[in-house]
Every structure is written in C-alpha cells, then in structure tokens.
C-alpha cells in the first residue's frame, strides 16, 4: 500500500508533513517507509548500504524508526553548477546530464517504478513525497515524482498547501484542476499547512473547495518552527544535520507537531483510510 503527498509549490511543507505521518504511523505500530521518486537537492546523506539519497528521506526514515536505504530515493539530481546536473541513480553516481545530453526519462521512470515496487514488497505502507508542484505545465509530460508516479502506480494522493504566503485555496483548486482528468480520481484529500490563528474562519472556504473538487480536507496544520531538513533547491544546508542531538530534536519536534495536529482535530483516521489501513 502507498500514498503520495503532493505540494502546491516547493516549500509547501511536504517533507515535514511526510515525516510527521511517518512518525505518527510508526508510533501506532505500522510498518511505514518513506519514498521520493526524484529529488533535486544538494543535501544528501550516505546510506548504510553505501548509497546516497536525499536528506529529506533519511530524516523521514528515522521518523519511521528505520534505517535509510537507497530505494527510498532512486533518482537524486545534484546541480553541480554551469548547467550540469549529476544524476545519482539507485544511490550511485550514474552520469552528468546537460542540456545537450538530457536524462533518459523513460528509463529513469522505470527505475523509479522498480524501486517503488521493491519498497512496497518490503514495507506495509510506502509514504511517497512528490517534488515541487505536480502541475508545472511546461514540465508535466516528463514528470517522475508526481503525475509520473501516479500514472505508473495508481497511488492515491494528498495535496499539501501553504497558507502562509496567501492564495492557498487558489493553489489547491488550481493544482487539482490541472491534474490530468484520468488521474483526478486518485486525488483524495488536501492539507492546509502553516496556519496562524483561529481555524474556524477557514471553514466555509474549505467546504467550498471540498465540494468543487471532491477532495476531503484532512486538517489545518499550524505554523511550526520546524523548517529542516530543507528539501527544496532553494536552500542548502552544509550537511551538518547529522548526529544524535539533531536526530532526537527532530523526532521530538515531530511529536510536538503530532500533538498540535491532534489538538487541532487533524483527521488521522481519514488519512489512514486513504492509505488503506
């Protein structure tokens, strides 16, 4: 079984929400593991099996109480400057891609699918994270981690929107609208992230979006001061997030986040249902 978290933009909070759900489910005894088809990031981490994956998945793995492994992030794209991107495939440097020598999308999508299948064999639930926005009209045809994955796996999806910047209802509705019609039935729910204030003022708008899209709102998460590990291409840490302290601090932050979510009435049961649990 699996589920995919999509974001209305990069930085919408997918990584953190995935980590929170990993933690929540593992605390409830579910064998859960993170997965991100393709990652554009400079922040990577070495796995015990000698591979390399995006740092976000490593943290999510720890949140799920398991060790990071290469199948959690089969495609890692590391910008190395001057328009060159290093493609790390299944944890190993594979080739440098440039404008004139682009990535073989068909092949990589197959690799993504294979890794996804292997993860599904090993774990009860695979919690997938999308990449950026799933509906970049100029990139959608060649997408791997979002609609690409939805297409080849039929995975159900949940959309995470960031309310802090404003326009979250437009972002959720617009994203849903631009998802290809044949994939719309896979769009099951949405989450409003980073809210400050009294959630009741959003009720009517949420109802409106629910009735327009048929997606169910799982909840409104409050603004949390937990912003790492940064997964998007806009920020880079210098890889200093390892070590026990950070690890423990991260987990306890997630616990706090879960407590807040429960307090605010986040629909964990609904989420479980969508996951097929």
């Amino acid at each position: 079984m699996s589920i995919l978290f999509l974001g209305t933009s990069s930085g919408a909070g997918k990584t953190t929400v995935c980590a929170m759900v990993c933690r929540y489910l593992s605390r409830n005894g579910v064998d859960v593991a993170p997965f991100k088809g393709s990652n554009l990031s400079l922040n990577s981490i070495a796995t015990k099996d000698g591979g390399e994956i995006g740092m976000g998945q490593a943290f999510q793995a720890w949140a799920a109480g398991i060790e990071p492994e290469t199948d959690m992030n089969p495609v890692l794209l590391k910008p190395s400057g001057k328009g060159v991107i290093q493609l790390v495939l299944n944890g190993r440097p594979y080739k440098n891609i440039t404008k004139d020598d682009p990535m073989d999308r068909g092949m990589t999508l197959q690799e993504v699918k294979k890794a996804y299948d292997r993860m599904n064999e090993r774990h009860r639930l695979v919690l997938c994270e999308g990449s950026g926005s799933p509906v970049e009209l100029n990139l959608m045809d060649t997408d791997l981690a979002n609609v690409g994955l939805m297409r080849v796996t039929g995975v159900p999806a949940i959309l995470v929107g960031d309310i802090e910047r404003g326009g979250v209802f437009a972002a959720i509705y617009g994203t849903w609208k631009l998802i290809p019609d044949e994939l719309k039935p896979q769009m099951k729910g949405f989450i409003i992230n980073r809210f400050r204030g009294d959630g009741s003022i959003l009720r009517s708008a949420i109802g409106h979006i629910e009735s327009l899209t048929g997606m169910k709102c799982l909840g409104v998460l409050r603004y949390e001061y937990l912003r790492f590990p940064e997964e998007d291409s806009l920020s880079s840490s210098d890889g200093k997030l390892e070590g026990n302290d950070v690890h423990t601090a991260f987990i306890s932050n997630l616990d706090e986040m879960i407590a807040h979510a429960e307090e605010d009435g986040f629909d964990f049961d609904g989420l479980k249902k969508i996951c097929g649990l």
């Binding site: 209305t8 933009s9 930085g11 950026g132 926005s133 970049e136 009209l137 972002a171 509705y173 617009g174």
Partner: peptide, 14 residues
C-alpha cells in the same frame, strides 16, 4: 517557488 500555473488558474477560477 513553483506551482505558478496552478496559483494563476486557481485564482482566476475562484
């Protein structure tokens, strides 16, 4: 930040 087409379309349609 990405998602601009969705933001644009969603804004117009809502």
């Amino acid at each position: 930040w990405g998602g601009s087409f969705a933001y644009a379309l969603g804004t117009v349609e809502l």
